[in-house]
Design a binder for these strands. Sequence first.
DNA 1: GTATCTATACCGACTGGTTGGTATGGTGAC
DNA 2: GTCACCATACCAACCAGTCGGTATAGATAC
Lengths: 197, 197
Amino acid sequence: MDTAVTLDARTRLLQAALHLVRRQGWTATSVDALCADAGVTKGSFFHHFRSKEALGVAAAAHWGETTGAMFAAAPYHAPADPAARVLAYIDFRAALLHEDLGACTCFAGTLVQETWASHPALRAACGEVIRAHAATLEADLAAARPPGAHWAPDSVARFIQTVLQGAFVMAKATGSAETIREQIGHLRGYLVGLMEG
Amino acid sequence: MDTAVTLDARTRLLQAALHLVRRQGWTATSVDALCADAGVTKGSFFHHFRSKEALGVAAAAHWGETTGAMFAAAPYHAPADPAARVLAYIDFRAALLHEDLGACTCFAGTLVQETWASHPALRAACGEVIRAHAATLEADLAAARPPGAHWAPDSVARFIQTVLQGAFVMAKATGSAETIREQIGHLRGYLVGLMEG
DNA sequence: GTATCTATACCGACTGGTTGGTATGGTGAC
DNA sequence: GTCACCATACCAACCAGTCGGTATAGATAC
């Protein structure tokens, strides 16, 4: 028993990265702080990761895997109508929100905003995670697209992520997660308009 | 002559902050780097600013003033129809884009994403700059709102900023400013739908 | 059974360099 | 003189990363 609490050091470091980087940013999160949060020593850190950047790349992949599994198992796939599934995804994203912005905002979006110009490997890893998540919406959007509509499913999938990422920034600026809910409402209205033809 | 090049040290430091923070982020931009970029010494830095954080607050205000003056003087206010003015603003934002993301993305959005939890003064300064810019759109949106429409001008003004901020994050993730243009296209379509009633 | 070998996981003191910030001194305008 | 402005030298704390070493477990040999 107890295996859920006693994770291996590598996984604890990845979780510490998600925890601290979402709250403090990448540069402000030191290797020592990551080790303290994970309850491991510096020797252990550099045994598992060649560098701080390598941990960041692995953490982005870890973020993609854990959130990917969570979304794959979520109930919004249930409706028979593809347009209803898209809107159920939007409502599911809204239901995930709470006032602790450090726990409900996007790790990849936060990380890439800070490292896009200086750390190409981190930029690529974050870009891939966001692209892959957006891609999971394309099939439902394509099926929900009225004949003759002037929009592309992949472009709308990116727009959904754009609004979410922007809402996270705006929420951090206003200090309240309520901002995100408001913006998701506008996004929902736009999608309804697109899909009802 | 030559006054445009020989700005005072304080202004050069503020411009250095805009230049470096937009490309490297807040924590990764050191006081020494700011001084080197501005061509001043550390003594001068701490003569004009009590701390690095104080420079950040002043830089956010400087960003609000310079961009505010630029938008106030922009041609998108010309159309007689308020809905046309809103769409002209959107098109103006699109026209400002180019491939150098470090020069066409938002200083306040970049800064607040990194400092919202750890530097309350910076968070407040960035939040105010973004709020003030969004507020400049409210009058035109209110005038363009069809009678009986179910949207609030201030909320839509925030949505416009949300999409722009999100598009900047997505552009950094994909590595191309073309992403921003695509997202602004969706935003334009949503606004047309809202304003034509 | 046990001695030996090998690989993985982990530890924490240490290093060279950087950080934000300070102390102090100079210099030109009024 | 004095005061705003700037320069230089300096500091303690902190940074990412290194290094010599230990602990443990499984495989192989005899």
